[in-house]
Simulated assay, not measured.
Amino acid sequence: MVVYEGSEEQTNRIFRALADPTRRDIVRRTVSGEASVSELAAAYDMSFAAVQKHVAVLEAAGLVAKEQRGRERIVRGRPEVLRHVHAVLDELELLWRTRMQQLDDLFAQEAEADAATRPHDGTPPPPVP
């Protein structure tokens, strides 16, 4: 698996946080530019407190950082954590592509073996009992 400075529990927190579409959208918005919690709350049909809770989940997962600027809390995405997510997903994709290739190879071997046992004079193969 991918070696990451964080623990496996931290990786689990990241993926649990990203499971929610509102949180994924908050990450998208804050990676491209920082936003205050008030600005984020204005973008969603939910209470300010609900948006604060979403931001808290993202912050606990390390996907965003929040800082106080005067009376506002500014949220910014942390692209380095998203790179970790990307690396984990790349590794899983490679694993599944390898497994699918192994299955394709196995099916090809069976098809070749089946073709080798068939008569070449055009008669159908004998029925399988």
Rank of each mutant, 00 (worst) to 15 (best):
V3Q: 15
Y4D: 00
E9S: 05
Q10V: 01
R13C: 00
R13L: 01
I14H: 04
A19S: 13
R24W: 09
R24P: 05
D25V: 13
I26H: 02
R28H: 11
R29V: 03
R29I: 03
E34C: 09
E39N: 09
A41M: 09
A43E: 14
Y44N: 01
D45P: 05
D45E: 13
D45C: 02
S47C: 08
A50P: 04
A50Q: 15
A50W: 15
Q52H: 05
K53S: 11
H54V: 02
V55C: 04
V55G: 01
A56S: 13
L58M: 10
A61Y: 00
G62K: 04
L63E: 05
L63S: 02
E67Q: 02
E67H: 00
Q68S: 04
G70N: 11
I74Y: 01
I74L: 14
R76C: 03
R76D: 06
G77Y: 05
L82G: 07
L82H: 10
H84P: 00
H84N: 06
V85F: 12
V85E: 14
A87H: 07
L89S: 09
D90S: 08
E93L: 11
E93Y: 12
E93T: 14
E93S: 11
L95S: 08
W96A: 04
T98M: 06
T98A: 11
R99M: 07
R99S: 09
Q101T: 09
Q101N: 07
Q102M: 10
Q102T: 07
L103T: 05
L103C: 05
L103Q: 08
D104E: 14
D104L: 11
D104I: 10
F107A: 11
P119F: 14
P119C: 11
P119W: 13
H120N: 06
P125S: 03
P126E: 05
P126G: 07
P129F: 13
P129A: 15
